[in-house]
Nucleic acid binder design. Structure first.
Lengths: 266, 266
DNA sequence: CGAAGGGTTGAGCCCCTTCAATCTTAGTGG
DNA sequence: CCACTAAGATTGAAGGGGCTCAACCCTTCG
């Protein structure tokens, strides 16, 4: 099942690859697979001691490389592993009876997929890679154990991380249920920018997303066709600019106003 | 602000009142304000030791009685308290720019409102009482402390409770975004029945809800007018029966089929 | 060069909304 | 006990936002 190469953080082979001379790859996808990115993420919500950091970095994990469109987990899988995203984007989805897809959340470097599932004990939705992606698989037990051993720091940070994800989903409910398509899409674009900037991955006014318009439509609860019209309209109004998979927000304030976006709940 | 009477669970007076001879009331709404109902709720997801139970029951709290429609917390309130529902129903809502309301979740006896907010440190939505309601206010600090002191049991159970709420919200995203009104409403009715039965409060095929049709519409992301038509249609089809605020599901299987309901994610 | 995936555009329709009115029920005070 | 009131439920009619169906275009990749 875990097709990919299995490494434990301490193997020599891993360190060897650190010598590859490709600055780009070094930034996007460090040749040394390390949970450093997770530490940084957790530290943002809760102060960690050196001991905490060491404990996280010492977690045993397996790196799995995923291609665009590949399943990370499937609904009804046993919740045996949490998937820590080392690099790349992924999303959670649910399929309804008629076959329609809804995307529940979009994640990237430092996010933990299935954290809630491994605490609850069952996977309740699919997770897929949007683009080439590296995830570290950590056993559910190890996660629960480290949280229980460092309850006031790591435990709290993990709890917070999982709740922050949940809060975002709540925002999506409101967005999808009570805003028209124009507002909804503007809100979503603001949200991506806001989160990317917060995570130090991009400028909120200018970022590239690997999502296709179909993906975005499935986030917004729209059809791809209608989403396209909305995007075009926003572009025509001079609020945003699209090229390939890059989004430029001409005026943050205007788009936030259109999108009824307040960054307060994030 | 906290109008009500303050009691700590360990007082003698409490033990005395446990002798009241009314088995029904003892189950539904113990005359003793006690966190017993919370203990029972948490125990359902995680085994607790006697020490855990005692620790929970010893939590200092303030009982607050609420009338129908009263605010429990407001968006942007400081997250000073978690609100444990001792009896009654409540819901969380968010208001969008245009003034439309969306209900994010519906809670009742044993549920903890604002648990996630008090871990995250900020309240991000309103919470209101649907009907006469008693809530125990426990300080955020006490909650975090008890979780940190009993990480593998109480901490885990609280974590789970908050995540279970979040998972439900995820289900609502899908429901609202990708199902038509008929399916959506049927799903919601199944969900309420399922959860009520799980919590030992009603039969899933026959329960009364204090929600008005307007509330239900705001759960489903519909207008109250359209919701009414959908309900009437479901009734005309012989799937459900409505009288006052009571719902009878004629055939669970049929309604679940119509509503694309699978209880797996709960 | 062909194929495939994704983006773009048009036309028509339908589900749900909006606006408006009426009916029913529950609660209140005389 | 009943009239009065307000909240909620119900029904009708009309309009529009987003969907469906059906093309066509553009880019990327083998």
């Amino acid at each position: 099942v875990l097709g990919a190469h299995v490494r434990s953080e301490s193997t020599f082979a891993v360190d060897c690859r650190a010598s590859v001379l490709d600055p780009w790859r070094l930034i996007i996808e460090p040749p040394t697979a390390s949970l450093e990115v997770i530490v940084r993420k957790l530290e943002r919500s809760c102060a960690l001691t050196d001991a905490d950091r060491r404990a996280i970095l010492a977690l045993p994990f397996v790196v799995r490389s995923l291609e665009r469109g590949q399943y990370i987990t499937r609904e009804a899988d046993p919740a045996a592993y949490a998937h820590l995203i080392l690099s790349g984007w992924a999303y959670r989805q649910r399929i309804v009876g008629k076959g329609a897809r809804q995307i529940l959340s979009v994640h990237w470097d430092g996010d933990i997929l299935n954290l809630s599932n491994c605490v609850l004990g069952a996977v309740d939705c699919d997770a897929l890679a949007i683009m080439k992606c590296e995830v570290a698989m950590v056993s559910t037990l190890a996660v629960k154990q480290i949280a229980a051993e460092h309850p006031a720091t790591i435990g709290l940070a993990l709890w917070r991380a999982s709740l922050a994800d949940g809060a975002l989903v709540g925002e999506w409910v409101t967005n999808i249920a009570r805003r028209d398509s124009r507002t909804r899409v503007a809100h979503l674009l603001c949200e991506f920018g806001f989160r990317l900037e917060r995570d130090g991955l991009a400028d909120r006014n200018w970022y590239s997303i690997p999502l296709t318009q179909e993906h975005i439509a499935d986030c917004a609860g729209l059809t791809p066709i209608h989403l396209n019209r909305v995007l075009k309209a926003l572009e025509r109004e001079g609020l945003i600019q699209l090229s390939r998979r890059e989004i430029t927000i001409i005026s943050w304030q205007s788009l936030a106003a259109v999108g009824d976006f307040r960054g307060n709940c994030l």
